[in-house]
Amino acid sequence: MKDVKIESVLTVYDTLEELPEGIVSLMKKASEARLNAYAPYSKFLVGAAILLDNGEVVIGNNQENASYPSGLCAERTAIYYAGAKFPKAKIVTMALTAGSQMQATTSPIPPCGACRQAIAEYEVKQDTPIEIYFMGETGKIVKSNSLANLLPLGFDRSFL
């Protein structure tokens, strides 16, 4: 037996102003998308903005449903829309922001497990890492250079 140590390297920015200019713009688009989320049950709004290698920006937000499993997270809404509209484009960067209508959300909020798996699928599909920036409504922003930092030991097609 041996222990295996897995580490993730993330970059933490204190404010939006510290981010590269293009990322500030992408995060603002994610924030705008968040405001249009449909979340009458959880009151938890999430927005995503994706920059593609063709220069297009695709947005998404969470869409809830009274039959809870039928809803869809912002990240997957944006990824699947990008895949449907621009099937040959690669995802370069994702910006995510989340906030509660019940309390201030100042901690960075990463993608949920299902969204991590969907992002992982696209990293494998395009054979290129996806930069992911995520935050609450305000406060620090976390950057991961790849989904692999957020989902080590991920499940992909190599296991099938």
Rank of each mutant, 00 (worst) to 15 (best):
L160F: 14
K125F: 13
L10I: 11
S146I: 09
N61D: 13
P87W: 09
L72S: 12
T77A: 12
N149W: 10
A33H: 06
K29P: 01
K90W: 03
P129K: 04
Y122W: 14
V142D: 04
C115A: 10
E121W: 11
S42T: 12
N65D: 15
P87A: 13
V92C: 10
T15W: 05
V58K: 00
I91H: 02
T128I: 07
K28Q: 08
N36P: 00
G99S: 04
V142R: 04
D53A: 03
K90S: 04
G83L: 14
T138M: 09
L26I: 06
E7C: 02
K140D: 04
A98V: 09
A48E: 15
E131N: 14
Y68F: 14
N149Q: 13
E17N: 08
Y38G: 03
K140L: 07
F44P: 10
N145M: 03
K28N: 13
R34Y: 01
S31I: 12
P152N: 11
S8N: 11
K28A: 10
C112P: 01
E21S: 11
A66P: 00
V142E: 01
K28H: 07
C73A: 14
E75P: 06
T15S: 15
C112N: 14
I23P: 00
A148G: 01
K88P: 02
K28I: 11
V92G: 02
M94T: 13
I23L: 01
L16F: 07
A82T: 13
C112E: 10
N145T: 11
T105N: 06
